[in-house]
Design a binder for these strands. Structure first.
Lengths: 168, 168
DNA sequence: TTGGATTGGTTGCTTTTTGCAACCTTTGTT
DNA sequence: AACAAAGGTTGCAAAAAGCAACCAATCCAA
């Protein structure tokens, strides 16, 4: 009953933009960016991880234009990062919740956050410490690990200085 | 997440471009996205990790417009993700190389790649397997770990369904 | 050493995407 | 019933992206 009735007819002329054209990019990084590769989408996901669920709250907390928010929420729902749930008592009133796919972006957000904390720290700012509930201790630094659990750098895995060994 | 409160209008009555106005965002995710939060920037970094260094190669491999490439490379250099090195013999001829800061985006790219592989796999496609050189074995799935090494989900750390319990 | 191809851009112009404000319809409240 | 709030939509102006043409320096081959 609470259908997304307005998706087709009312959405803008539905262009084939660069974003659409990457839909089938063979590289999964490109396909991931197709889902969440713009500024607002990832911030919306971040906000959803903080507990925000309502349109109006996203709008106020992010300071995003309403039409852009609409567009991004719809896109995130279409990409199954969020689901739109009708929580109305006698009609419709919506919530946008993270799906499993959306929750699974957690390591991406943590990696980005840690990178920002390390390289773009504002002078006075202490980095926000993510603390897990069970132990009450900060989470570990996120890393790429080999089979034996040793941390790996890009040079250990990719050919960033050996152009002839290209992974793709 | 202490910035829950002050993420109210993240953009004040924006006079400058959105990007400039996020420079001093208190959230490190936003600041990270300010450096690499657009489509092309992250793909350029990905390509650099594969070994690409030259303007023309980026252009051909990514199919990006030349003026946009110019702009992004300059921005990445300004943000110290890449460095521009003159490798000319009798004049100038440039290479764009990852800085330490740029190489340190490796976990972000791996997290994105694994997410894309898990959730957006094209039917026939096997995911690209990142293999470390030393062991010749695939890297582990990237995860957020607690102090004891146990994997954590977003619900273990953030308050995505308990808005009142906001992590400090 | 000359002439053509390559590299690394810049310039103008057109198309898309954003941001902003105003407006509109459906709920929820009193 | 009257009014406020939620959740959008619409129209318009400004910014960013894409595209093609052009350009100056450098390298390469004869």
């Amino acid at each position: 009953m609470s259908e997304l009735k307005n998706t087709s007819p009312t959405s803008p002329p539905a262009k084939r933009s660069a974003k659409a054209s990457r839909q089938n990019d063979p590289c999964s990084v490109a396909r991931a960016l197709n889902d969440v590769g713009d500024w607002w989408s990832l911030l919306i996901v971040r906000q959803a991880m903080y507990g925000t669920r309502r349109y109006g709250d996203f709008q106020k907390q992010l300071g995003i234009a309403k039409n852009i928010l609409c567009d991004r929420l719809t896109r995130l729902v279409n990409n199954e990062v969020l689901k739109k749930v009708d929580i109305g008592e006698h009609g419709q009133r919506f919530e946008y919740r993270l799906t499993e796919k959306g929750k699974d972006l957690f390591p991406v957000l943590v990696a980005l956050r840690q990178w920002g904390d390390k390289w773009n720290r504002e002078d006075g700012d202490a980095p926000v410490r993510l603390v897990d509930r069970r132990l009450g201790l900060p989470v570990q630094r996120i890393q790429v690990l080999d089979e034996e659990g040793q941390p790996l750098t890009v040079s250990d895995v990719l050919s960033f200085n050996l152009p002839e060994i290209v992974a793709e």
